[in-house]
Amino acid sequence: MSKRVLIVDDAVVMRMMIKGILSKNGFEVVGEAQNGVEAVDKYKQLTPDLVTMDMVMPEMDGITAVRQIIAHDPNAKIIMCTSMGQQALVVEAIQAGAKSFITKPFQPPKILETIDKVLV
């Protein structure tokens, strides 16, 4: 069965791209969220196998969302989507329970590789 993914990003272009890459590679994108609040809600509602999480978002940032999701489900598999220059935040997110991270601008093979490793 294909793995179910929740994509969290405030940028529609980013969501579309990640969605495109994932659905062309056998993943099922079950939901999209535009901010941390939506992300937490949708995680609870959809219980996806994987979450890709943007860091900088309105309403609630990615790290706070990671904390809340992990509090709800300690086994949640979350991959952070980061930009260069955000190293401190990445560290914080991983300490909060994110499993790994990918760096923008994304290279499709790399996203898939990171996801595969996290889902093992």
Partner: peptide
């Protein structure tokens, strides 16, 4: 060690293997 161990290697490996 405050974080889960699974994450570090893959990300780095992926980074180095990143083609083109």
């Amino acid at each position: 060690g405050a974080r889960p161990p699974a994450a570090s290697e893959p990300a780095v490996a992926a980074a180095i293997a990143a083609p083109e």
